[in-house]
Amino acid sequence: MQEAVVHFIDDDDSLRTAVSRLLGAAGYTVRQYASGDDFLREQDLAGGCILLDIGMPGLSGVQLQEHLNARNSILPIIFMTGQGDIATSVRTIKAGAEDFLCKPVDQAQLCAAIERAFERYRSSARDHSAHQALAARVARLSPRERQVFDLVITGLLNKQIADRLGMTERTVKAHRAAIVEKMQMRSVAELVAAASELRLLG
Rank of each mutant, 00 (worst) to 15 (best):
T88Y: 00
T88I: 03
T81E: 01
A97Y: 02
K94M: 11
G84Y: 05
M80T: 12
P104Y: 10
P76F: 02
D106G: 14
D99T: 07
I78P: 08
Q83G: 10
L75S: 09
T92I: 14
I74F: 03
K94T: 04
I86Y: 08
F79P: 00
P76D: 02
L110D: 03
Q83Y: 13
I74A: 06
D106L: 10
T88F: 00
S73N: 09
S89H: 05
F79W: 10
S89A: 15
R91G: 02
E98A: 12
I77S: 02
V90S: 05
A108K: 14
F100Y: 15
A87Y: 06
T81P: 03
C102Y: 06
L75D: 11
D99A: 15
D85P: 00
A97M: 10
A108F: 11
P104L: 11
V105M: 14
L110H: 12
T88M: 09
I77C: 05
A113I: 06
A113N: 06
D85K: 08
Q109L: 14
C102W: 01
I78C: 03
V105L: 08
G82Q: 09
A112K: 12
A112W: 02
Q107F: 07
Q109F: 09
K94Y: 02
G84C: 10
C111E: 15
N72H: 14
T81Y: 05
L75T: 07
Q83N: 15
Q107M: 07
E98Y: 03
